[in-house]
Simulated assay, not measured.
Amino acid sequence: MCIGIPGQICAIEGLQAKADVNGIRRDVDLTLVGMTDEHGQSRLGQWVLIHVGFAMSVIDENEARETLAALQNMFEVEPDVGALLYGEER
């Protein structure tokens, strides 16, 4: 099964970005979604769905928060989901 995790873009340098996922900053490649949206606005502050280090799509904040809440509920019964939410170190 493949799963993406929502993250909010908090820094951009070229096509590389940092995304905040539950307080953990992750490296994200923006090649698939671009550094700017269709209006030329920076992706900074936008939410993206991240899979294997790539931003796969841009999602809205409500969808992102609902997905994070669902993953948190999954974590309560399946601790392996914690690596997605909190990083490998947990």
Results as ranks from 00 to 15, higher is better:
Ser57Thr: 14
Asp20Val: 07
Arg90Tyr: 10
His51Phe: 10
Gly34Gln: 05
Phe54Gln: 06
Gly23Tyr: 05
Leu84Trp: 01
Gly82Pro: 01
Ala70Lys: 15
Pro6Glu: 03
Phe54Thr: 02
Asn73Met: 10
Asp37Val: 11
Asp27Tyr: 07
Lys18Glu: 08
Glu66Leu: 14
Val33Arg: 00
Glu66Val: 10
Glu88Ser: 14
Gly45Trp: 10
Gln72Ala: 14
Glu78Asp: 11
Tyr86Pro: 05
Val77Ala: 02
Glu76Ile: 00
Met74Leu: 07
Ala11Tyr: 09
Leu85Cys: 06
Ile5Thr: 12
Ala17Lys: 03
Leu49Tyr: 00
Met35Thr: 08
Gly53Asn: 11
Ala19His: 04
Thr36Val: 13
Val33Pro: 03
Asp20Lys: 05
Gly34Asn: 08
Ile59Gln: 07
Gly82Trp: 02
Gly34Glu: 05
Glu38Ser: 11
Ala70Ile: 10
Cys10Asn: 11
Gly87Ser: 04
Phe75Pro: 00
Arg90Trp: 13
Thr36Asp: 12
Ser57Arg: 10
Met56Val: 12
Leu84His: 00
Val77Leu: 07
Pro6Gln: 02
Leu32Cys: 05
Asp27Ser: 01
Gly45His: 04
Leu84Ile: 00
Ala83Pro: 00
Gly7Glu: 07
Glu61Gln: 12
Asp37Arg: 12
Val33Ala: 05
Leu85Phe: 07
Gln41Gly: 09
Ala70Phe: 14
Ala69Pro: 10
Gln16Lys: 13
Gly34Phe: 06
Gly40Thr: 10
Gly14Ala: 08
Met56Ala: 07
Leu15Met: 15
Ile3Arg: 14
Gln46Leu: 05
Glu89Asn: 12
Gly23Thr: 06
Glu76Tyr: 03
Gln8Ala: 04
Ala83Gly: 09
Asn62Asp: 11
Glu13Ile: 14
Cys10Arg: 06
Lys18Leu: 12
Leu71Gln: 11
Met74Pro: 02
Ala55Met: 04
Ala11Pro: 01
Asn73Cys: 09
Ile59Lys: 04
Phe75Leu: 09
Arg65Ile: 09
Leu44Val: 07
Gly34Arg: 03
Cys2Ile: 12
Val21Asp: 02
Arg43Ile: 05
Glu13Ser: 15
Gly40Arg: 04
Ile5Ser: 01
Glu13Thr: 14
Gly34Thr: 02
Val48Cys: 14
Val28Lys: 00
Asp20Phe: 01
Leu49Ser: 07
Ile3Asn: 08
Arg25Gly: 00
Arg25Asp: 07
Gly45Asn: 02
Ile9Arg: 01
Ile12Gly: 01
Val52Lys: 15
Ile5Lys: 04
Ala64Tyr: 10
Glu38Met: 11
Asp20Pro: 03
Arg26Phe: 08
Asp37Trp: 08
Glu78Ile: 07
Glu89His: 13
Pro79Ile: 08
Ile5Gly: 03
Ile12Ala: 01
Val52Thr: 13
Trp47Tyr: 03
Asn73Gly: 11
Ala11Thr: 02
Gln16Asn: 14
Leu85Trp: 06
Phe54Ser: 08
Ala19Glu: 02
Val48Lys: 10
Glu89Ser: 15
Leu71Ala: 12
Pro6Leu: 03
His39Ala: 11
Leu15Asp: 13
Ala69Leu: 15
